[in-house]
Amino acid sequence: MSEKLYIQKYCSIKNKEVYVGGKLMFSSETSIAKDFFKSVYQFLDIKYSKFFKMDNLSKLAFLSAEFLLDKNVSEEKNTAIILSNNASSLDTDRKYQDSINDSENYYPSPAVFVYTLPNIGIGEISIRHQLKSENGFFVFENYNANFHYNYENSLLQNNKCDSVLAGWVNIDKDSYEAFLYLVSERGEIEHTEENLKQLYNL
């Protein structure tokens, strides 16, 4: 792996808008996360029925990845995934808790339970893009550019993968924020801690 690595593509989804490479790609009026994600799914014009079964965190991760990964490019098959957030899977944990709170009406939902871990979103991206690569999900107070830079750099410099899909994917109720990017040997924006911070704050 060459010493210089680049942020090949990046995407941001928050406040009812989707930006790819800094350009507005899609916006919607709805302030309900589930409805917004559905409108982004429809905008992408894909047919993937499993999307509607995902929890909101997985939907956000899945949609962000759709803007960055070309499912037809074989060289991207060895793409590691390193994600982080603040709320872990709390949004879905609450829904699951609601289904078991009442002992008189105790019907735990298997379909909700399977999403009570934040890294399930990585699994959904991996299934969609047939990735069997290194991956990890970390929980931080805020987006940690220093951690991400070092982890992504280490994976690539040690030839653990050819590219890394990484970033921040956070949701709690209807407040959501995703900042995902693809790191590889190609691109124009150098993969540095400062650049990651700058793109995150755009």
Binding site: S49, Y107, P108, S109, P110, A111, V114
Partner: peptide
């Protein structure tokens, strides 16, 4: 319809509920 094993578990819960 294309249901998977998790969906089948959910249907078992639905039958009960």
């Amino acid at each position: 319809i294309g249901l998977d094993s998790i969906d089948a578990l959910e249907l078992i819960v639905m039958l009960d509920k």
